[in-house]
Design a protein around this nucleic acid. Structure first.
Lengths: 302, 302
DNA sequence: TGCTATGTATGCTCAAGTCGCATGGGCTCA
DNA sequence: TGAGCCCATGCGACTTGAGCATACATAGCA
C-alpha cells in the first residue's frame, strides 16, 4: 500500500465536505488536483474508495475503513506538531459542532462546564446538519448539536448509525416586528401569512426554503435571503419581513421583535439533537455531553 | 509542519538501527537518500532530530518526541493496510525480540501461552541487546528478552528508562568436546584455558570477543568465529575448539558436548532480562510477559 | 603522526510526481 | 433542451526524490 499523508488529508476533507470540489476549496487546491490525489489514493489502496454519484460522493466500505485509520493518523500528526512546537498536548480538547442557531444552549453549557471542570478545552464549529454528520464520521468532530424535524430521520443514512440523544424539543414560531399588526395577536391565522414578505435562508438544491413557514398554500414571497441569524432578525425588526424561529430562541430575541404562534396549521415541531459516533469516547466528551443535556433541561419550552 | 510518511519510516528505521547507513540498507535506499530524507524531516519538523556522533546517532528530545508519534502513525498505517487487504486486524499480535540464544525459554513460553491463550499471536525477531533496545524505543517491538552481564547496567542510557525484570540468572560455563581431556573434570583451572583454541562470535567495534572466557591472561587464540550457535556447538563437538555458553543452555545441549565450570577465576554471572517501554501495554503483552516469567522459573539453574 | 574504517553531507543528473489551467463528459433539475 | 454542478483528463511547468560519486569528520591503530 502506497498512500501519502496528503492523500489521507484529502480523503478526510472529502468525507467531511461531501464533494471533491468543496474539499479542493477547503484545502486550497484546485478540483483537478483533488481528483488526481483521489486517483493516486485509490491506486495506492488498491480499491475504490468513493462512490461517485451526482451531487456528491459517498464512501465505499473500503473508504470508510481507510477513513477511520486516516482520522487516527492525522490526529496523531497534529499531536506531534503541537508537541514539537512546545504547546500543551491539549489532551482534553473536545471538538464540538453545532448548527448555526444552537449558540445559546452551547454557550450556556460551555460556561457551566468551564465552571465545573476548568481543565476541559472545547473548540466549536458551525455547520449544517449534513455537514456536521459528515464531520463526525470524518473524525473531525467529537460531538455535534443538530436540528431535526419530523419525521425525525437519523442525521444520515450511513452505517454504523450515529448515536443520537434529544437535547430539547420545541416548536416553530414566527418572528414579527414588535409594532406590526401581526404582533398584536398571540397567534396568527395561516391565511394571514400567505402574502407576507418572508426572510429566508439560502436553501440548498431542492430543499424547502428555511425561514418560510412550511406547508403554506401558494408560492411564498421571499423578500430577502440571509444566512446570519442576527441579520435576519434585524431585517425583521426593521419591518422588512417575517421569518420562522425555533421557540428555543426566545431567551435571546433582540428588542423590536415579537414571537407568535401560527394557528390553523399543525404545529411544527423541531428537535435539538446531540450526536456522536458510536463506540468509546473520552471522559471529556462525556462531560461536555452531560453539560449540554443538563443545560437543555433548564431551557424554557423543553 | 511538513513531514511525509517516508520521512517517518526513515526516522523509525534510523532509531532502530542506530545509523543512517544501516537504516538505508534496511529500507533499500542509499545512504545519500536517507541523509536527504533526514534533512527534509528536520526542516519539516523545524528542529534537529538527531545528534550525529561518530559511530552512530542519538535522538534528540525532539527526535524522541516525534518518534513516539511516528510509531503510532506507522502502526495505524499498517493496520489500515491489513484491513484493506481483508486480513484480520491481528489485534492481539505481540512483537517479541530476543537475543540469539534465548530461543529455548522463548519457545517453551510460546508453547505454554498458545496452550493457555490460543488467540494471542506472537511474532519474534532476533537481535543484539542494543539493537533490541533501540527496536523497543522505536515502537517496533513490544517486548524483548535481553542478556546482561555485571555490573548489570540498564540496556541503554536513553530516557525514559526501559522497564526491566530479571527472568533468569545463570553463570557462564565452557562447552568442551565430550571426549576431550577437559571433559573429564567437573571444573577446569583458568590456566588450562590459556592456550586453548576458542570459537568466538564476531564482535563489534571495541567490544570484547563473545565466546572467549573474559579476563584470561594473554591474548586468546581464536580458531574460529561463528555467529550461529548451532554452528558453534557443532564446531565444539568436532573438537575444533571450545567456547563459552550460558548455563541456561544445558537443557538443549546437543550430544558430544559437555559443559564444565571454570575454577580459579570469579564466576561469570549472566542475567536474562525482559524489557519493555514504560507506560501502558496491552493485555496480550502482559500475558506473554507472564508466560515468560513463569517459564523462566521452571528452568534449571534459576 | 599518518592510515584506515566508519559514517554523514552534498553537487550533479535524471525520472517521477504534483499542481494549475483548460476542456470534456455525465447527471439532475427547471 | 439548456444551465449548472460535478468529476476526469491531456498538457505544460515546476518540484521532489533517488542514485552516483565524492568530500568531509572522527575514532582507532600502527
Amino acid at each position: 500500500m502506497d498512500v501519502t499523508l496528503s492523500g489521507l488529508r484529502v480523503l478526510r476533507e472529502i468525507a467531511e465536505r461531501g464533494t471533491f470540489t468543496a474539499a479542493a476549496g477547503a484545502l486550497g487546491y484546485t478540483q483537478s488536483a483533488v481528483s488526481r490525489q483521489v486517483a493516486a489514493l485509490e491506486r495506492g489502496a488498491g480499491s475504490t474508495l468513493f462512490e461517485r454519484r451526482p451531487g456528491g460522493i459517498r464512501l465505499t466500505p473500503a473508504g470508510q475503513s481507510l477513513l477511520r485509520h486516516a482520522a487516527v493518523v492525522l490526529d496523531e500528526m497534529d499531536a506531534a506538531e503541537r508537541e514539537l512546537l512546545g504547546r500543551a498536548p491539549e489532551a482534553g480538547a473536545v471538538r464540538l459542532g453545532m448548527f448555526p442557531i444552537a449558540g445559546l444552549i452551547v454557550a450556556r453549557s460551555l460556561a457551566a462546564l468551564r465552571h465545573a471542570h476548568p481543565g476541559i478545552e472545547v473548540t466549536t464549529r458551525e455547520g449544517s446538519t449534513p455537514a456536521l454528520a459528515r464531520a463526525l464520521r470524518a473524525g473531525v468532530l467529537d460531538l455535534a448539536v443538530l436540528s431535526s424535524r419530523p419525521p425525525y430521520h437519523p442525521p444520515d443514512e450511513e452505517l454504523p448509525a450515529l448515536h443520537v440523544v434529544t437535547l430539547a424539543e420545541g416548536t416553530l414560531l414566527i418572528a414579527v416586528p414588535a409594532g406590526s399588526r401581526l404582533a398584536a395577536q398571540d397567534a396568527v391565522e395561516a391565511e394571514e401569512l400567505a402574502d407576507q414578505p418572508w426572510i429566508a435562508s439560502p436553501s440548498g438544491r431542492g430543499e424547502p426554503a428555511l425561514g418560510v413557514w412550511p406547508g403554506l398554500p401558494g408560492r411564498p414571497r421571499i423578500a430577502h435571503t440571509a444566512k446570519d441569524w442576527l441579520t435576519k432578525l434585524q431585517l425583521v425588526a426593521a419591518g422588512c419581513g417575517i421569518t420562522t424561529v425555533p421557540s428555543n430562541l426566545a431567551a435571546v430575541m433582540p428588542a423590536g421583535i415579537r414571537m407568535i404562534a401560527v394557528a390553523g396549521l399543525p404545529a411544527e415541531s423541531r428537535r435539538t439533537l446531540l450526536a456522536r459516533l458510536p463506540g468509546p469516547h473520552s471522559s471529556s466528551v462525556a462531560l461536555l455531553a452531560r453539560a449540554l443535556r443538563e443545560e437543555a433541561g433548564h431551557l424554557p419550552g423543553s
